[in-house]
Design a protein around this nucleic acid. Structure first.
Lengths: 144, 144, 144, 144
DNA sequence: GTGGTCTAGACCACG
DNA sequence: GTGGTCTAGACCACC
């Protein structure tokens, strides 16, 4: 499940992060094309306009550039820049978690325990958050 | 800086988490009142309706109960329940970070390094995230 | 539990109905006094102002009259009038129920079945409404 | 007259019940959309925010789910669940009526007579309640 | 067009 | 003073 429509962060931002991660991981290398808007829209079951907006954002950040009629290409320094952004993205999540923990007076040792458990659990990419959490990541969802 | 209007997560959810953390930390104890809607609205520079919605959500989660004309009180098991929710909230943040890291192919050792640095840095509650990150937590701010 | 603070109908209205029912039942007869404001406030665990407002309403409806320093007395035709009002109150509830049922396309036979079950169940004055109903009588309540 | 602003039960709750009844009656079937917020607001001459709150409650109860940009859809088991809730709503009304009757010492036979008359009268959906009743359903209206 | 959130300001019931 | 509801009108993300 690459994008989550119930997540508070906009879908176009999730796509930006997704591509950013792929660039950092070397899935797409400088000079290569990233998937077309239509292709990604189909894959993510999302409106092409939304992918379009994500790609605009990636171009604005200098990670990719557009050649009309040819496709969208990874910039020369795209991989490297993406690695930095990915690191920062990870750090931002961790920071938020630590701040929430501090506010709730969770001792650092317990914080680290939670972290370790998370790393272990996340190796199987199942939904990691417990039910009924003060999640603040997603709208509370009901089963269709 | 208790709430951030530029964050993607709605203000009312931020307030929910904030109070939830306070309950977990024992700032407000079972049987005591939490701050009045108007008071918190003034403190957070936010519309009373927004606080009201947050409090309504807290009541729905069973953390507090309200007595007309008197105020909103912490439930008997409010502190305990809040601790569980706070743990889950922290775990959710960590899980997201780890997932982003895995997608970007960041090795676990580096993930842990980032985590440790985060914990160290977050002791002074300065803005922890680097500028320009693939930070899906906040809207891009126009005027920093 | 004579009054329910979580009921949508205001407490003062519940008190009005309660006294009205007592008059209809002959608990208090014409020329006798009804309980003092302070006494009823203590019994119902309610602010005296609220009882005061209920008694004002009863007086406005002509069911009782006030003799300063002596108390509040049932009017000459109080019992009879109250009986009419009680009938109407019952009919109003039934009407609402039938209307809701009609909107939900519940056949009359089933409506009557529900009614009979209700009458049977209500002989033991336990809380009659199932959990999670489209109740519309009370705010959804959480346990303190 | 789908919603009554003079009723003690909040407008948003009346809308919840109205939609709930429609679901139970099969007016909207699983997978179909319910009316848009703005459309219903126009139809009921009510603020869109009020409809929004009602729909939010319906989603929380699992009767519907929402897809951004598309609308709000009836859940798979929405009709069935709604039927249960509608039954409960009817029973709640009847229970209240019977309780009021018992308090006023109205004999069961008379209760049933009132019920039958109500069912008969409610076939023409005219205003069923007599004027001036101990009617805790509606605010006393100033200008009839 | 759809739903989701926020602000501003009003009225009510309760203490 | 407290919380609860409603209206008016605004901005955003998504289709």
């Amino acid at each position: 499940m690459p994008v989550d429509p119930n997540n508070y962060v906009p879908i176009y931002e999730q796509i930006v992060e997704h591509i950013c991660g792929s660039l950092a991981a070397g899935v797409y290398r400088p000079g290569e094309t990233i998937p077309s808007i239509r292709a990604l829209a189909l894959e993510f079951v999302v409106n092409p306009n939304t992918v379009q907006r994500a790609y605009q954002e990636l171009e604005r950040q200098g990670l990719v550039y557009t050649r009309k009629g040819l496709g969208i290409f990874v910039s020369e320094n795209g991989s490297e820049t993406a690695r930095g952004k990915a690191d920062a993205a990870v750090a931002a999540r961790f920071t938020q978690g630590v701040q929430v923990g501090r506010r709730a007076n969770i001792p650092p040792a317990r914080l680290e325990a939670i972290f370790r458990e998370t790393v272990g659990r996340t190796n199987r990419p199942e939904n990691g958050s417990s039910p009924g959490a003060c999640d603040s990541a997603s709208r509370p969802r009901e089963k269709p």
